[in-house]
Design a protein around this nucleic acid. Sequence first.
DNA 1: ATTATTTACGTAAACGTTTACGTAAAAGTG
DNA 2: CACTTTTACGTAAACGTTTACGTAAATAAT
Lengths: 335, 335
Amino acid sequence: MIPTIKDVARKANVSTATVSRILNELPGYSEKTKEKVLKAIEELGYQPNAIARGLVSKRTKTLGVLFPNVSSIFASEILNGIEDTAHEQDHSVIVCNTDSNGVRTMKYLQVLNEKRVDGIIFTSEVLKKEYYDALVEMNIPIVLVSTASYRYPLPFVKVDDKHAAYSATEYLIKNGHKKIAMISGTKDDSIAGTPRVEGYIQALKDNNLSYENRRIVYGIDFGYKTGVMCMEELLKKAPDFTAVFAASDEIAIGALSVAYKEGIKVPDDLSIIGYDNLKVAEMSIPPLTTVAQPLYEMGKIATNMLFSMIKNGNTAESRIIQHRIVERQSVKNIQ
Amino acid sequence: MIPTIKDVARKANVSTATVSRILNELPGYSEKTKEKVLKAIEELGYQPNAIARGLVSKRTKTLGVLFPNVSSIFASEILNGIEDTAHEQDHSVIVCNTDSNGVRTMKYLQVLNEKRVDGIIFTSEVLKKEYYDALVEMNIPIVLVSTASYRYPLPFVKVDDKHAAYSATEYLIKNGHKKIAMISGTKDDSIAGTPRVEGYIQALKDNNLSYENRRIVYGIDFGYKTGVMCMEELLKKAPDFTAVFAASDEIAIGALSVAYKEGIKVPDDLSIIGYDNLKVAEMSIPPLTTVAQPLYEMGKIATNMLFSMIKNGNTAESRIIQHRIVERQSVKNIQ
DNA sequence: ATTATTTACGTAAACGTTTACGTAAAAGTG
DNA sequence: CACTTTTACGTAAACGTTTACGTAAATAAT
C-alpha cells in the first residue's frame, strides 16, 4: 500500500502533527526529530497526498485554463507561458478545449469548480453572461487573456487591437502604400474583429487616404483557409491594391499562398503584413512582416496576475500589452 | 459559504448518505426523496467537491500528460486528441512541459503522483530509467505516445519510424529521384533519429541506389532552424542532389526557405518531402508533400488505451499507427 | 396472518491531511 | 531558586465525501 503520514509517524515514533510540521516547514520540532522523520520518509518512499491536503487547506495548487482551440499555434504559445509560470510557483494547469462551444464551456466551468482550482484563465473568446455568472458563483480569481469584457469587471491581459491594427496599416502607409486592402477575421467579433477594422480605417483617414468598402473582406475565422478564400475574393472584387493588412498571421499566410499561385510576387508586386507573430511567421516564404503580440509573455503576465490575486485576495489591474512591428520581408517600400 | 452535501441533506431532511446515493445514481431511495433532494441542490447551487470525493474514492478523474514542448505544433495536436478523449470520459488533463529537462521531468512525475492522477501519458521523448522507476513506483497506468521503450514494458502508440522513413524515401525514388539527400534531426535519438535514417538507407539499398554518407546531415533538434542550417550545409557539402527527405515538417520548411533564398525552385529544381503532416505543411509554399503521422488520432488512441487500463487494471497492447504519404506539391516526378 | 424478502433510508467510520489547543519539559529571567 | 516564557511535541477535530452496516417499514410469499 501507499504509505501515509501515519505510517511515517509510526515509523519515526512521533505524531502525525509533527510530521506535518516538518513537511510544511512550520516551527515546532528539534533537529533530531526532523532527521528521524526525514529518514522514515525516505525509507518508506512517502509522498504527501495532495488531495487530502487540498481538502483541508482548501488550496489545490491547480489552475484551470480555457482555450477555444488548444491545438492552434496561437493558444499553445499562451499555454506555454502559463504553464511555465505556474510551474515556477508549484502549480499545475488543467487545460480545457472549449471548441468555442457554449455547452462545453459551461461544463468545463463546472468541472473546474468541482475540482476546486485556485484560479482560472479564460482566453481568446468573448465572455458570455452565462460564463460570467458561473465564474462569479465560483468566487475565485480569474483573468482574461487576449480578450476583455467591457460589461464585466474582470482583469484582462491583451494588446490594444485597434491601436495595433492602426500601427500595421500606418506601417504600410509609411512604406508608400496608398491602396491598402484588409482581410478581417470574424466580422462581428467585438474583440479581434471590429477593433482591428476600426484601427485600419482610422489609420487611412488620419493619413488622408480614402477608405473604400470594397477593399475590406471578412472571413469566418482567423485561419489559413479564411486567408485563401478572402484573398481570392479580394483579387476578384478589387484587384488594384498594393498592400494588404491581414488580421492574423494565418490569414496572411493564406493570402501569401494565393498570391504565389496567381504569380503575384510578394513583396515585389504586393506587400502583406500579418498580425500575431506566430512562429510560422518567420517560417513563411518570404518571412512575414507582422505586428507582434507577445503571446508567451502574455501568458506569463496573466498567470502572475492570477497568483497575486490568489495571494492577496484583491483584484489585479488589467494590462494593455505593447505590440510591435516585426519587420521581415513581406513588405516593400514603394515610394 | 460554499454549500456541502450536509447542507443539502439538512435542507432536504435526509441523510448525507441518501444525497450521495442520488448524486451517484446508486439504488436506495424513492422518487419523492430524489425530487426533494434535487430541489435542495438546485436551491443551494450545490456542486460536489471533487477533492473530497477523490480522497475517499481514490479516483481523481484527472490525467497527466508530459510533453517536451507544449508549444510545438506537434505536441499541441496530440494534446488536442488527448483532451477531447479525456473530456468525453469526464476526465481533466494536467499538462506538463518538461522542456526535455530531466530534473523538471522528475519534478512533474512527483507532482502528478502527489495529485494522484489516474493515469499518465508520456510523449515524444526517450524514457530514462529514472523516469521509469518513478512511474513504476506510482503504480498507475501509463502509455507512451510518439516514443517507445524497448527496455521497459510500457505500451506505446507510435508510427513505425523506420518504415515511414522508408516509405518517404521510396516515394522519392518512385518519382525518379536517384540522388536523394536526407536531413535528420537529433543524431542519437533512438526514437525519431536513427530509425528514420535507417529507413532512408534501407530504401536506397533496396532500390540499388548507392548510399553516400555526405548526403546525410544531422541537426540538433527537429525545428525550423535546424532545417535551414542543415540545408545550407548540405548545399555546400554535396549540392548534387535532386531531392531531400527531411525528418520533420519544420525541417522541411527550413530547407524550403533556404532553397527559396538560393533561387532553387521547389519542386522544379529540387523535391522535398517532410515528415509529420503538421498543419503548417499545407500552409507552406509550395504545399509540402509529407509522410503523415495522425497526431490527433494518436492522442485519442492513447487516451482510450489509458482508460481501458484504468478500468480493467490490465495493460494494453501497443499500437503501431499507420503512416501515409500526403501528396502535395513539393515533389516532382522527374523520370 | 405470519414469516421472509426487499426497499428506503440513517449512522458512523474512513479517506489522509492540517491545525487549534493543551501540556510537559527546557530555557530564560530576576 | 522560583518564576515566566519558549520549545517540542501530542491529541483530536475538521475538511466533504463515500460506503459498510444496521434497521424499520413496506412488500411479497406461504
